[in-house]
Amino acid sequence: MEYTLPQIASQVRRDIVRMVTAAASGHPGGSLSSTDFLTYLFFKEMNVTPETWHRSGTGIDQFFLSAGHISPVLYSLLARRGYFPVAELATFRRFGTRLQGHPSVEKGLPGVNQAAGSLGQGLSVAIGAALAKRLSGDPNTVYVLIGDGESEEGQIWEAAMSAAHYKVDNLVAMTDWNHQQIDGTTEDVAGLGDLRAKWEAFGWSVIEADGHDFPSIAHAFAEARTRKGLGCPVMILWHTEMGHGVDFMAGTCKWHGKNPSVEQCAEAMKQLEETMGDFAL
């Protein structure tokens, strides 16, 4: 049966909360804030399927997750899209799993093309992949997701300068702008400031959109497509809320990297409709 985007997103949110509860560790906050636009990216936007995916990305759209700690949302989306069995979500963070705490290529999990976790590195990798597509005449697009807190890393701005310098216009970078990081808000911790002005100053074409509203998400991705090939890298700044979808997790840094109790998980499940069937625990 065909599921609607909100139905898929609801199931992905259930997966995220159940995975971190079962593993008694992991990062629900940023996973929940990234769920909606990534659901759209994986189910509607990218021209890649579990059958066509391969690590080198030749001839397909490519996605790099730079903020590797939000692995729960990535794993759920890959499983729900059919890259590997949904049942495998139950192995998240367990000894011997392909679903490592932070994404790894070591055990060959389909859909994962690069390790991430130590922050700030994925944008550079995505630029390299986009330049490779240019070199080989591959017309497809490279997508990469970074966190707003991650943007405090110096390497992000090295990469920002480089992408504009090389006119990497087959690259769509995205920031999950949820305004929260481990120690507090991005303003209190590091004075993150005006991300739009910063990216534009670095020569990027910037799109801002509500990262939880599907029409807004669709419009932003469509707009990004029209800006391909115009000589500028594209940045979509997604306005989001950390912990979105679970009332006691929403809008706070407290759930960046904390697992709920079994009782809290049950409370969250009441707020998230089961649509595609939970994985077995």
């Binding site: 550079s124 990798v125 630029i127 992949a129 490779a132 390497q155 090389y166």
Partner: peptide, 25 residues
């Protein structure tokens, strides 16, 4: 076309190289 002057940004250079390598270069 196969040479990239990255500037004084070694961390970015390592990442770009990794991305090129993922793609088979």
């Amino acid at each position: 076309e196969r040479f990239f002057e990255v500037g004084i940004a070694e961390a970015n250079m390592v990442g770009m190289a990794a991305g090129l390598a993922v793609a088979g270069y």
